[in-house]
């Protein structure tokens, strides 16, 4: 809780220390990815379901809002809400076959579904402008106020992130959070304990998809340009790494992971092409030595400092 409050304070003050629009743009990306990774963590970290199709949901959210706002002239708020709903429905539809298969097979199925959705987006040119990408998406605007400057946009995104993280923190402390983790730690035992594991998995897929949809909608209106190439498998791997390095199954892990893996590539510019090697080694080291990620490490350090009396 205290760590969360500290991070929030930092985030609120951050624009005061950011000099240029380029850095602010990176901050925008980090915030959107926090939202995406936090939702993904509901599946991967809390419920233990490894989906490789999550980026496709992110793409559906981005395209839904872009199409409704640009092609149909609907307000941003309507576009974002529709993105959330449609992506949520897509998440539930993915969950239904996912109930029948487990482990690696689930991962492969979701990988295939994700690619199919990405190719479908590229193929439906009249709707999505295909491989050329979707341009001219307006800045978010709510009740007549348009978030024009980078700083205004930053605070809009931050507000969404705070709501999203609070949502997950509250959910974790309810019967749903406990049921998700119980499924992750022992599906049969959870079922026998009276947890409706099928319903809970569908819920986890649906909620994480809504997060992806909102993040996608915000991404479209922040970047103002989206193309199918952005929503590729490499982004899926990055997302996976954000949750694993930050700390799966913790509320703040994806926050830390998303910020780190958005900012780190900027700092590591000098290593250029070797970046992916560094990145791969970091994932490897985390799975070997920090199974609970950086937040797990922080928790054990705090526990050790408090105990030695």
């Amino acid at each position: 809780m205290r760590i969360g409050a500290g991070l929030l304070l930092l985030a609120v003050l951050l624009p005061l220390f950011i000099g240029n629009n380029y850095q602010l743009g990176i901050a925008h990306q980090a915030l959107i990815l926090i939202l995406l990774a936090s939702g993904y963590n509901l599946l991967l970290g809390f419920t233990g379901l490894v989906s490789f199709g999550h980026i496709a949901l992110f793409a559906i959210g981005a395209y839904t809002s872009a199409i409704l706002v640009v092609s149909y002239g609907l307000p941003f708020a309507v576009g974002l809400l529709a993105a959330a709903l449609l992506t949520g429905v897509a998440g539930v539809l993915i969950a239904i076959p996912a109930l029948r298969i487990k482990g690696h097979y689930l991962t492969l199925l979701t990988l295939a579904l994700g690619e199919v959705i990405r190719l479908a987006i590229r193929g439906m040119e009249s709707l999505t402008h295909g491989a050329a990408g979707f341009t001219g998406i307006p800045r978010p605007s709510v009740l007549g106020f348009t978030f024009r400057s980078g700083t205004e946009l930053y605070y809009l995104l931050l507000a969404c992130v705070v709501l999203g993280v609070l949502f997950i923190a509250r959910l974790e402390r309810s019967r749903f959070g406990r049921a998700f983790k119980a499924i992750r730690d022992g599906e049969t035992a959870a079922e026998v304990c009276g947890v409706d594991t099928a319903a809970m998995k569908v819920l986890a897929f649906g909620l994480s998809a809504v997060f992806a949809g909102v993040a996608g909608g915000l991404y479209a209106h922040t970047m103002r340009f989206i193309s199918p190439e952005f929503f590729s498998l490499s982004l899926t791997i990055t997302l996976l790494a954000m949750v694993l390095i930050g700390g799966r199954g913790t509320v703040l892990g994806p926050v830390v992971g998303a910020v780190l893996l958005t900012v780190l590539p900027e700092w590591l510019r000098f290593v250029k092409d070797y970046y992916l090697i560094v990145f791969g080694l970091a994932i490897w080291a985390c799975t070997m030595f920090l199974p609970q990620g950086l937040m797990g490490l922080a928790a054990s350090v705090v526990a050790r400092v408090r105990r030695p009396a």
Binding site: L171, S174, R175, F176, R178, A179, A182, A190, C193, G194, V195, D196, L203, L207
Partner: peptide, 13 residues
């Protein structure tokens, strides 16, 4: 223990 209580809890999301 609370997971064992899951089927008796009713609060929604």
């Amino acid at each position: 223990v609370l997971v064992g209580r899951a089927c008796r809890l009713r609060a929604g999301v």
